[in-house]
Amino acid sequence: MANDPIRRSDEEWRGQLSPEQYTVCRCCTTESPFSGRWWNHKQAGQCRCAACGYPLSDSADKFDSGTGWPSCTRPAGDVAVSEHADDNHGTHRGEVWCARCESHLGHLFPDGPAPTGLRYCIDTATLDFQADAAR
């Protein structure tokens, strides 16, 4: 678990997040492909959790998966995300959560490129972006 875990009531999350962010981050829904703000974003920097600001991934690890969601080969660090089994919708996959605030971020698939062979497929509603110049 990330340092300084964040726990808020459902009411507090609703007040902090937009309706779309709330349904994706706190209710584990998925946005439509090719629709989110960051799905085709190419600037160098770091993706952070929209709910708590925790660093999630670096643009150096991002790749175009063709799925319509931002994808990367690994999280920002060993404790950036937590992974859970997700057997919904007739498929087995990993679900990815922010390790700090436990927001649902997206899913993990074993079909990514080298060096990890993993594809962290993240809903853009769960993300904020910090450009390299701002870090």
Rank of each mutant, 00 (worst) to 15 (best):
C52W: 08
G68S: 05
D87Q: 07
A2L: 13
R135L: 08
Q130S: 02
T67K: 13
L108K: 01
A114V: 03
Y22K: 09
N88S: 08
D132R: 03
N3M: 11
C98M: 02
A125Y: 00
D132N: 09
H92E: 01
A76F: 15
D78P: 09
R37H: 14
A2Y: 04
C72V: 11
H104T: 00
C49I: 10
A134C: 05
E12P: 00
A134F: 01
S32G: 03
A99P: 10
D128T: 12
F129V: 13
N3A: 14
G90Y: 12
L127Q: 10
D4Y: 02
I6E: 12
N88E: 06
A133H: 08
E20A: 12
W97Y: 06
N3D: 14
D78E: 06
Q130A: 15
T67L: 11
P115K: 13
C28A: 10
I6W: 07
L105M: 15
W97H: 08
T91L: 05
S71R: 02
P110D: 12
A85F: 01
I122T: 06
I6P: 15
L17T: 02
S57N: 11
F63M: 10
G68Q: 02
R119Q: 12
C25N: 15
L118R: 15
Y54W: 13
E12F: 00
Q130Y: 01
F34Q: 11
E11W: 15
M1E: 09
A2F: 04
E83T: 05
D61W: 07
A133K: 13
D64F: 15
W69E: 00
G117D: 02
G36Q: 07
T29R: 01
S35L: 02
L108C: 00
Y22H: 11
A2D: 01
Q21C: 00
W69S: 00
E12A: 13
L127Y: 01
P55W: 03
L127G: 03
W97F: 13
C72R: 14
P110R: 04
A50W: 02
P55C: 11
R37W: 08
R37I: 09
C121A: 09
L17G: 03
H89F: 10
T73C: 04
Q130K: 13
H104G: 00
R93A: 09
E95R: 00
R119N: 01
R119K: 10
C72Q: 06
V81L: 06
D78N: 07
G77T: 13
D111I: 05
P75R: 04
P55K: 10
C28V: 09
R48P: 00
G112N: 12
S18I: 05
C47M: 14
V24E: 12
G77E: 05
E102D: 14
S82H: 03
T29V: 00
W38A: 04
E95V: 00
C28S: 11
L127K: 00
D10L: 04
G117F: 14
P5I: 14
P113F: 08
Q16G: 05
R135E: 04
W39P: 07
A114E: 03
G45E: 06
A133R: 13
T124I: 11
G15D: 13
A51D: 11
K62G: 09
S57A: 14
D111T: 08
C52V: 05
H41M: 15
W39D: 05
C28D: 07
G112S: 14
G112H: 14
S71N: 05
T23S: 07
D111R: 15
R26K: 04
C121H: 03
P19V: 08
R14D: 07
A85H: 09
P110C: 03
A44Y: 10
G36H: 15
T67N: 10
V81R: 04
